[in-house]
Design a protein around this nucleic acid. Sequence first.
DNA 1: TTTCCTTCATGCATTTACGTATAGTTCTTG
DNA 2: CAAGAACTATACGTAAATGCATGAAGGAAA
Lengths: 295, 295
Amino acid sequence: MKEMPGPIDWNQMRALLATVEAGSLSAAAQRLGLTQPTLGRQVAALEEDLGIAVFERVGRRLILTEAGQRLVADLREMGAAADRVAMSAAAQSQSVEGVVRITAADIYAGHVLPPLLAKVRKAAPGITLEVLATGSISDLLRREADIAIRHVRPDQDGLIARRCRDTAAYVYGTPDLLDRLGRPSNGVELARCEMSGAIDGIEPFIAEMRQRGVPLSRANFPLLTQSGMTGWEWVCRGICVGPMVEAVARQTPEVEIAVPAIDPIPVPVWLVTHRELHTSRRIRLVFDMLVEHFS
Amino acid sequence: MKEMPGPIDWNQMRALLATVEAGSLSAAAQRLGLTQPTLGRQVAALEEDLGIAVFERVGRRLILTEAGQRLVADLREMGAAADRVAMSAAAQSQSVEGVVRITAADIYAGHVLPPLLAKVRKAAPGITLEVLATGSISDLLRREADIAIRHVRPDQDGLIARRCRDTAAYVYGTPDLLDRLGRPSNGVELARCEMSGAIDGIEPFIAEMRQRGVPLSRANFPLLTQSGMTGWEWVCRGICVGPMVEAVARQTPEVEIAVPAIDPIPVPVWLVTHRELHTSRRIRLVFDMLVEHFS
DNA sequence: TTTCCTTCATGCATTTACGTATAGTTCTTG
DNA sequence: CAAGAACTATACGTAAATGCATGAAGGAAA
């Protein structure tokens, strides 16, 4: 009505961007650590200030208007710049107190990291560790995590990756299941078993196994999951056989290597962080401890 | 200490950027329509969240630390993106209610615009007009104004400029002063008079007058000001002679043209706005009314 | 069709953040 | 050297924003 054109509330812009990217007010609220009514009000206030309707309320769903879509284009750049600021700030923080986020496959988060995390906490009690156990690879450039543990070579620019000692992986199964399968003794026999597998990781695994004389195909994987934990649970319960890194399987007494004659599969381990963040004291500290542990 | 790494408060970033650009908390507060304690707290909270010291409190002055300088680099990009969002939003606002900011030389703001503003307000009562009477040219690209009235050809990209009918300017003086000066009747005699002038506009004016046979030099301008209003006041009070557009001088009965024999100086008039903002309904409305008036 | 889950809107109590007023400090000006 | 101006830091009362709880409405699945 008679709005003095004071600068727009940047938090309201953040609310709009988060809502668009998350797809709903509720999801955006969770992501920002706020509540859904708050976000709803912020977006509404922004629409009021701007004088345009960003969302069209159709049923329970918010769909962007044309005007909203044009806004979001520039808004994403603003968000990217905000991320860069946060990144730059984190990089220059020389405090050993604060949060360090680590992302890793859920198997690693659950079975490999715990003793390591305890060591870090003991060495630097001021550091709060946050572990993102995620199947999909999170985006380091968007600062969803500070350090990532990956098993493929990172290809993004701006990242520094440190390759650690390879881990050996084998195909495991419970003794009970292996007995029922007739104790396969070579690759060809193993290729007749059903296996658990990760949804987006079986192709390279099949190729790797074929080099070792195990003629697998997609037909060997009737059970797929994006959760490494789930797949491993299937193996531990004798539902099927499946591959696992040796460091994890060693902690699981109820399984054994299905065919010891087959050579282990080398699994590379990369520790990845931003080039920026490598100058942060506490992130550097955690990174170095991870490197030491994996080397 | 134990800060859950929720996204950074964007308003705190805005506070920091404004403080850096304004040079002090107080100035930034005025610019953002907030108060100094509020801004101080926001900046302090941001420093706490980021874990780094952005400012070094030395005496009454805040000077950026090295870390702060690196932050600000990205922060400016964020601010620029925010401006683009605001611009895009304003451009798409099809409401005839809202604020339209016009920037013009103070002389225009005081003597030429008033009747025009009344006309606009009558035609569109929902529009709030805000006039920035500024000596220096404000930055349209940073959305300090929606429409600018200028007398030089705009060279920035992204702007659309509409040239209007030129205005004639003469050198004026009070009859009393002209009598004391011996009633100069040609350019050479006029060049012996003292004149008022704008700090950053006398060079082209001198060149223009020389073409008309008035051999002026910088020595003719012992009184300089960046305020057109002030300079004209000097002329009206008989302190010196000085140039003025005819449309303004006509409203001032106490002055007369110093040397009628000299040809008038054509003063171009450009109306300038963003290419973006030209699609805004209310800005387009005001712009068109200005064009109509000046043509 | 019916049921259940998800999502957005609203009312109310509370906490947070803001503005006003004031004191303290430093740099400048006469 | 002294007085004033400008800026930042602190205290306190108040207003605004937030969170919780609830309701309503739409869509998916049985």
